[in-house]
């Protein structure tokens, strides 16, 4: 089983959206895929999937008797693809438990996250996509530690390059995983590009931008996803590539999946 984590320095970059769409694309290819919401401080995968989960990852972290089967929600029947999800709780009290956790509980949480990974591997999952919380929260680092590949999502218009750079140089250099940058909602002169294909002039701009990022972060840009109005309009109501598999955005997610698979 391979684990891919989506992370960012700041919130609102589109981690949840990209991770859910990538999980869908991989599941559509026949890979048994699960998406884990480890964004305990701002969970929104439940909203995106239109689900209200009773047992969540928060419960698993505090109850040793729970297993992955208790928290997994299957979308196999609904969408006819091997897609599963485990959600973070939106209950305010449960979110507070995570924030208040002492060292002893944190060690238990880390153990249970590692055990969850083992259980998913035993259940023959091919891919686990982790949606982490932004910044250097303890839980998000726990997610990064167990992953094989990390996608650092940057919003190309207003990202904090200094903050992201310091996080990359200090934290990402310690990780054992393969790290990539995903540029999301890229705005060029023609926006959105026709059929999702950059014009020559825009492509040059994007390439220059990717080069700057590579020089600054010392991490390769795996893909630059343009800002699509349809995606923004759809918002967080559903998983976009599930509803619109032929849309250029979905094709970009396919490209992302190809590039990640190539890296393993």
């Amino acid at each position: 089983m391979k684990i891919i984590a989506f992370h960012s320095y700041k919130g609102g970059t589109g981690k949840t959206h990209l991770s859910a769409n990538l999980a869908t694309v991989l599941a559509r290819r026949g890979y048994k895929t699960v998406i884990l919401d480890l964004d305990f401080r701002g969970p929104n995968l439940q909203t995106l999937c239109g689900v209200e989960a009773k047992t969540t990852i928060n419960d698993l972290l505090f109850d040793p008797n729970l297993t992955c089967e208790d928290i997994l929600v299957s979308f196999e029947e609904e969408y006819k693809i091997p897609l599963y999800a485990a959600f973070a709780s939106t209950d305010f009290r449960k979110m507070g438990e995570i924030v208040r956790a002492d060292r002893k509980q944190r060690q238990r949480s880390l153990k249970r996250i590692l055990k969850l990974r083992d259980e998913l591997s035993e259940d023959n999952f091919d891919f686990t996509i982790i949606d982490t919380s932004p910044g250097v929260q303890m839980e998000s680092i726990d997610g990064l530690v167990i992953s094989d590949a990390t996608c650092l999502v940057l919003k190309a218009d207003d990202f904090d390059i200094t903050g992201t750079k310091s996080m990359v140089t200090q934290l990402y250099s310690l990780l054992d995983s393969t790290n990539y940058v995903v540029l999301n909602r890229v705005v060029a002169e023609t926006c959105p590009p026709d059929e999702g294909i950059w014009s020559e002039k825009d492509l040059e701009l994007v390439k220059n931008f990717e080069k700057t990022i590579k020089d600054e972060m010392r991490m390769g840009v795996i893909t630059s996803i343009p800002c699509f109005c349809e995606v923004a309009r759809e918002g967080s109501r559903n998983i976009f590539s599930l509803q619109h598999p032929d849309h250029p955005f979905s094709r970009y997610i396919e490209k992302l999946a190809d590039a990640l698979l190539e890296g393993f």
Binding site: R103, K104, R106, Q107, L110, L114, V136, M138, I141, D142, G143, L144, V145, I146, L171, L174, L175, D176
Partner: peptide, 21 residues
């Protein structure tokens, strides 16, 4: 105690991390 992923990254050398995990 190695209680978080952060401890794991900062206190354990990379070659021992997999074994410790």
């Amino acid at each position: 105690l190695i209680s978080t992923g952060f401890d794991l990254l900062t206190k354990i050398p990379s070659h021992l991390r997999r074994t410790y995990k």
